[in-house]
Each structure stands twice: as C-alpha cells, then as structure tokens.
Nucleic acid binder design. Structure first.
Lengths: 117, 117
DNA sequence: GTTATGTGCAACCAAACGTTGCGAAAGGTG
DNA sequence: CACCTTTCGCAACGTTTGGTTGCACATAAC
C-alpha cells in the first residue's frame, strides 16, 4: 500500500544526468569525474558534484589511485533503488487496472439496466 | 539497451510531492489544489504549481466546476510512466545480475586454478 | 625542472520548489 | 440585495539545486 520509498535514494536517481552516470559506471565497470564528463554533455565539475551526491546516498564508492579518483557502483544499493522503481511502477499499474476493471463492471451494469426497460 | 526514457515524464514523477499527489488522486478519484493541500505538508499554492506541471506533461486533466477546479489522472499517461519506471528498474536489475554471474564464474575459475597447483 | 593531467574549491547564474500577501470570482446566508 | 466565506490566480521573494567559469594544488610524464 504505502510503497515505502526512500526519498533520498529517489532524488538521487531522479536526475537524468545521474541516471546516465550510473549507466556508464555499470557498463564500464568504473570511472572518474573526468572520464565520465567526456561522455556526458556537462562539465567535469558538474559530474564531480553528482558523484558526491551518489556517494552520499551510497550508490557509488570512491577509490583514490594516485591523482585519479575512481568510482564504482555499489551493487546492493543500486539493486535496492531498482527495486523501488519497479515497486512504484507496479503499484500504479495495479491501481490503474483496478480502476479499469471497476469502470468496465459499471459500464456492464449500465447496459444491462438499459435492456430491462 | 537504450531504455528510451521521456525526461519530461521522469522529472514530473521524480518529485516526491508530485508522486504523493498522484497517489492521492488515484485513491480518491479526483481532487482540487485546496483538497490536496490539506493532506500534504505544503501550501495550496505549491500544490497548484505541481498540478500545472503534471497537467503540462499530460499526467492529469482539469475540469472546472463553478469555483472549483477538479483534477484527475490521465490513466494512459500514468500507465506509460509506470512502465518506464519498471523498465529502468529491471534494466538495472538484469545488468547487476549479469555482473554477479560474471564475478561468480571468475571466482570459480580462480579456485580451480588454485587446485591445479 | 617543466609541462601536462586530474582534483578540489569558490563565485556566480538560472531554474525549481517553497513561502507569504493580495485581489478577484463564485457560492452561501442574513 | 448585501455580506461573508471559499476557491482560485498572480506577483514577489527566499532557498536549494544543477550548471557554469576560473583558479590553485597535487601527481604523473617528459
């Protein structure tokens, strides 16, 4: 019922740039602010801020190697976030289906009462 | 692969207040800015702005009755939005599963090569 | 040692979410 | 009708957020 959703996780994955960053990190294993910014339409600094947000909610973790700072996805956390997305989506789906069925049964009753007259 | 996502739809449902508004409209059938604001921790004016956003992307439709303006959800559009949520969630799920299986097979190979020595 | 590359920090801008305040239109009630 | 209440819409304002540019610092490469 209450589709218990972590608003911090949601707002983290609600941003389209951050979603693309997660996609990139998933498909390439890891990345730095610089490497990610080369594949995104925003500057390195913007990417760095997004990485800080993702790090704060635990969706990614950083490992410093020399002058580079490599980020990779926390698979457990991302799986939880993905589950929440699917949960909200399917919750809306089922409610909409219930409404649809209700509307159909009302329509059926209306037709039947018309036939009686 | 490309998880074709409508960024306008996403940003519309990305806001937690707007998600709760959609939940309320779904469970109560319809509502006005005033009636919704009574059940939310924000002012009527804030709700009105959110309703304008939802209306702009077509997730709700308005019907004026006297001095009241009743909103209800567009079920087709919300179903599409729900499908996108589930799509992104399951896309991440499947990628994470692939990574997990890969990690397991590498681990298995490592153990086997150790046994050989 | 000098040059190139990767980060981090600060200032700044625009858009988004929220607030308060006020005026106008529609409904009820003496 | 006159009055009061309710609902709405608009404008001004503050704060947070996503983005930019500019610069300083640290680490690697030549």
């Amino acid at each position: 019922m209450s589709t218990a959703v972590d608003d911090d996780l949601w707002s983290a994955i609600g941003d389209p740039t951050r979603r693309r960053m997660l996609d990139l990190l998933l498909s390439e294993g890891s990345g730095t602010a610089t490497s990610l910014s080369e594949r995104l339409p925003v500057t390195r600094q913007a990417v760095a801020k997004h990485l800080a947000v993702l790090d704060r909610v635990g969706l990614v973790h950083a490992a410093t190697a020399g002058r580079e700072k490599h980020f990779r996805v926390d698979e457990t956390r991302l799986a939880r976030a993905a589950a929440q997305l699917e949960e909200v989506g399917s919750s809306w789906d089922s409610r909409l289906q219930r409404i649809k069925r209700l509307a159909e049964s009302i329509e059926k009753q209306r037709r039947e009462s018309q036939n009686e007259q």
